[in-house]
Amino acid sequence: MSRMYEIRWHGRAGQGVVTAGELLGEAAMAGGSHFQSFPEYGAERMGAPIKSYTRISDEPIEIHSPVLEPDMVIVVNPNLIGAVDLTEGLKEGGVLLMNTPQSPDTIRKRLDYQKGALWCVDASAIATEELRRDIPSTMMIGLVIKAMEDDSRALIDLETAVDTVEESLEGKLRPEVVEANARAVRRVYEECVKG
């Protein structure tokens, strides 16, 4: 059986969602996996709802079309609730990851979501504290790793992911900002709640 893990990201254009997906893939690659990461290109305007996809597998990935039935859905921007069908196609027993200040109970009610696990974290608050800006996409990787571990499908470990994030930012950002990003990934990993 193929052990492919399929992820769909939801965010708004300009939030770094595509980059986060690529970094997640790179972290998987660093751990020896194959990956694919690609956005769904629509009308390209800042703030528009966008989707992006990441596939991770221990074998070369042959399929070249959007993920229809994700194992995991990651919602980077909480205000997409009601604007986009966030759980569309999500597998039974799949995982939904939310950046939200709200509790898992509230999110379950708002989305009428029962079919899988739910993890919530206020990544925007962490981003604002650590980076002084609400750019939570990359740090959601910490939540992906936590949820995968909980689901006994640990395809990426936290240290590899933090290293990948650091390497990708080094040379582009000041060392203290790189450090803050790494710290944010770890904080998301620690501060998320399942419910």
């Binding site: 194959h34 990956f35 690609f38």
Partner: peptide, 12 residues
């Protein structure tokens, strides 16, 4: 190569 699908798809 296929535009976007391959051209903009990141892989190993």
């Amino acid at each position: 190569q296929d535009g976007f699908i391959t051209g903009h798809g990141v892989e190993r």
